[in-house]
């Protein structure tokens, strides 16, 4: 007797849930379309900020220095060489520069605009008023920034591959793993951007580069494989706190597997853990900033 109204109530609830999911999905998609529109309009500045640093880096250290005969990177290359045969500094550098490009997008695409919006313009308020949970607005930032990271990594690859004077040894044996690592890395970078963007005041923006980005990259196994740090053991352990290490090493695993690198399972686990923690912290920061 009772089952009919119960069924009706259940189907009504199911319908509501479906409508709600559709409402959220559409709003989320709307946010993505907006970000894509803005990126399209600002594609040239986006490309130049993405390309300039790796372009000059590769040109000076992997093209000019070998031509001049200066031995920069020789020790690292030699260290790697003992473990992996003939690896050039350019080979070490390729995954590293892609990792930097990925992390830099997280900061440039999420942290900087957010800090400005929270600090002064408050223009985020309209997006916060969209009909979806506020945490989803924050998550959209991470997702969209990860697309930018993927584009950035893709445009840095040919630079780091073709410009160096020395041969670059790239072997991609496991495409699915490469895709997984790139996606996880990009999401982690976006989450890091969200955490930074919601934590710093706009007047501290300058410090983000000097106090966060510079130490992250210099101690992020970008210019040397993690294994070669064994000569300075405390540093080798210490840098494991740096999420960029797993991005660099992850790309090294996939692109230059002949170089020594961290175990794959460890990289995946660390990326998932650091990505999740940064996402949670970033979302909490975002909620704190928009809801009082």
């Amino acid at each position: 007797m009772n089952s009919e109204p119960n069924q009706a109530a259940a189907s009504l609830a199911a319908l509501r849930a479906e409508n709600r999911t559709r409402m959220y999905a559409r709003a989320f998609w709307g946010l993505m379309v907006r970000d894509a529109h803005v990126l399209k309009r600002e594609f040239v500045p986006f490309l130049s900020r993405t390309l300039m640093q790796p372009l000059l880096f590769v040109f000076v250290f992997a093209y000019l220095f070998p031509k001049i005969g200066q031995g920069f990177g020789g020790a690292a290359a030699a260290g790697a060489a003992t473990a992996a045969g003939r690896a050039t500094f350019a080979t070490i550098l390729l995954p590293g520069l892609m990792a930097v490009a990925i992390i830099l997008q997280g900061i440039a695409a999420v942290a900087l605009p957010l800090a400005v919006e929270f600090g002064g313009t408050r223009e985020i308020e309209d997006r916060v008023m969209a009909p979806l949970p506020v945490a989803a607005v924050a998550f959209e930032k991470i997702v969209f920034s990860s697309f930018q990271s993927i584009i950035a990594a893709s445009v840095v690859f040919p630079l780091a591959y073709y410009i160096p004077a020395q041969p670059v040894a790239v072997h991609i044996n496991n495409w699915p793993l490469l895709i997984v690592i790139v996606i996880l890395s990009s999401l982690t970078a976006g989450a890091l951007g969200l955490t930074i963007g919601t934590a710093v005041k706009p007047q501290q923006i300058g410090l983000v580069f000097s106090m966060i980005l510079v130490p992250l990259t210099f101690l992020g196994c970008v210019y040397y494989p993690w294994a070669s740090l064994s000569v300075v053991r405390w540093l080798q352990v210490g840098v494991l706190l740096n999420p960029l290490v797993y991005i660099s090493e992850g790309l090294r695993t996939c692109l230059t597997p002949n170089l020594p690198h961290l175990p794959t399972w460890g990289i995946l686990l660390a990326l998932v853990i650091s990505g999740s923690i940064l996402t949670l912290v970033g979302m909490r920061g975002f909620l704190r900033r928009v809801i009082s």
Binding site: G30, L31, R34, E42
Partner: peptide, 23 residues
């Protein structure tokens, strides 16, 4: 009371994307 218009978007875009957020 504050200007919360999307600074990266034109006047038209501001309304267009707002509509998109609402499905």
């Amino acid at each position: 009371q504050h200007n919360t218009l999307d600074r990266a978007c034109t006047a038209w875009d501001n309304i267009y994307f707002h509509c998109r957020y609402f499905g």
